[in-house]
Design a protein around this nucleic acid. Sequence first.
DNA 1: AGCACGCCGACT
DNA 2: GTCGGCGTGCTC
Length: 738
Amino acid sequence: MANRDNPPNQILQIAIPVPLDRLFDYWPPRQYASSTIAPGVRVSVPFGKATKTGVVWRVIESKDCKVDPKRLKHAEEILDAEPLLFFHDLRLLEWASRYYHHPLGEVIATAFPVALRQGKPAILQHESSYALTESGRQIEPEQLKRAPKQQALLTLFREHPSAIASSALAPHKTALKALLEKGLVQEHIEPARPADIFEKPKALLANPEQRQAIEAVVAGLGRFSVSLLQGVTGSGKTEVYMQIIAEALQQGLQVLVLLPEITLTPQLEQRFRQRFKVPIVCFHSKLNDSQRLNAWLHMQQGRAPIMLGTRSALFTPLPRAGLIILDEEHDSSFKQQEGFRFSARDVAIARAKMLNIPVLLGSATPSLESLFNVQRNRYRLLELSARAGNAVEPEFQVLDIRNKAMQAGLSEPLITLMHNTLEKGQQVLLFLNRRGFAPVLICHGCGWVSRCIRCDANMVIHAGERRLRCHHCGFEQSLINRCPACGTGELQPLGMGTERIEQTLTDLFPNKLIVRLDRDTTQRKGSLEGYLRQIHSGHADIILGTQMLAKGHHFPDVTLVAILDIDSGLFSVDFHAAEKLAQMIVQVAGRAGRADKRGHVVLQTRQPHHPMLTILLSQGYQAFAQVALQERKQAGLPPCAYQALLRVHANNALAPQQFLQAVCQLLPPLNAGRIQVLGPVPAPMARRAGQFRFQLLLQSPQRKALHQLLDAALPLLAELKEAKKVRWSLDVDPIDLY
DNA sequence: AGCACGCCGACT
DNA sequence: GTCGGCGTGCTC
């Protein structure tokens, strides 16, 4: 036992979630034999004034400790009897910390669900939960219309096909009792031994391409490979996933399925539960802390073989890891955009390599990065070209709106098309990536515009709420009637937002039901689901929305889709814009139509002969991607080069630039001229939320050289005197500027 | 990141 | 005379 005269001979090196890129040394807790402490266990430690939860990274001999022993404190408590993270997990986290140049303690924290970060015990919570019975699944909510409370609850259960925790059902106590008595709902019991109840899925029809893809991945189970499954909407990617998963389950392996958006999880969850009679856990931001803890522990303990999750599920420990699937791999939400800025796609591949398992990336519109890796024979391309079942290729129409009469962003020809479609009783989908009423309020008298006082951005008009709101910092004020500059001029909205278009649509189509889907209308919990039901039931005539419409959901009764403004995507400072636009066009087109009602996709543009657009529409996404890749190659841009972006911000207007100038002065001796240094330049939005922002871009055709420079340079940045006045962060493989 | 300490303006 | 503004420095 340790006492004052006899200090313990071992020291714990602990990773603590603070933005400091080093480990902290502690004595083991008093009365603790350090020999029983293994790397990967959580430990609570006094840190400054606070107590923090860290992870033991390694145990060293006290004679090897570099810190003055007098400064060392005792750790408080070892929180886990066994490590929660396995050897491969620790290796992956270390790699990620180095690759993204982000402190290890914070990287490790992202591997844990919040409850474990807070030091709560790693014990499965056995909160009772309820789920629909077979008859409950078959009954339509309509049949309960005389009992509206029960009907609402039934609908709730249908939206959460897995199970609902009893705590979440507290407000529905009486309705729950009624549904239990009717046998529509029962207490949900997690199957204890999955192997016993596993049933081999029924043999399904796979077409030759699907068969080939399934066999290719199945044959590769047990060793590392990356496959890119490229299949148009309706080509049956999910079926391919499920048949591969079935084989992995047969082999007793665990499968991690990553999706970009939580809105896609319920659909896929439902299909998976119908197919697989094994525990399936979900992990995404809509779950509460204890649900996430349970899901994580189910995988970590090997109790569940399938996890469906978003980016944050990536690091879940998998004792029997067999396969990682990443669906919609091109989606930018796989990149974390703050703090530890990692790409879930790239880390998934690194993880699979360490675990020696295959990765399957799926998309109708793969990223140029992935297609480039196919060209370089790093990834294997598996193509699904046939549209399964009732799907049919939509017809594209470039609508030249130059000199055309417009009503709130809608050209006359488009309005005519809308009338024709609606007359046939079919639905119309309109797409505009700008929410609010209008992006600017301008004075007709003096030219004053509604600038945000804290950002280099305009305040957006939200007419319904009578507010002006900055979409970059959240600052808002009430809508003003009189120009604050000249006091006399008339204030006018300038430009289009979804709210304004909705208003115009109400005037143009007075008898039609219009549904607007954007962040403003779907903020309320469950409202998105409500709108989607309205659309699927056929009640909605015109569906209007932003980016969120482009993802996942298929609307078979929509036969006319219009993208109202594609020109901003054709002419952007960001070199990713054309790729993103092409992906968006193809994805949006995939939302609509079916065999008996072919979809019609209209693109409003003032650049009808833009080469990118022409190639995309005449030769398809693959041809577009090849041309776009060629251009990136010639311009020396990613994916043919590697980038790291150093972002800096400060209250002080001059400090960011001064810091970056100092950085540039220390680079040349480390660099040997191999890395292009672009900048310092003001960030595209030079002031945001009151902060002045600058950036420096480092670029190289060799990833290794770039990382060598970063490894050498970053430790020196903190030492610069200019660093004291700024906050800086590094984004490795950035996908947007600052 | 927190959270201290530490010196200069508007209030009981 | 104080309360509190955020500049600077530290965390085993």
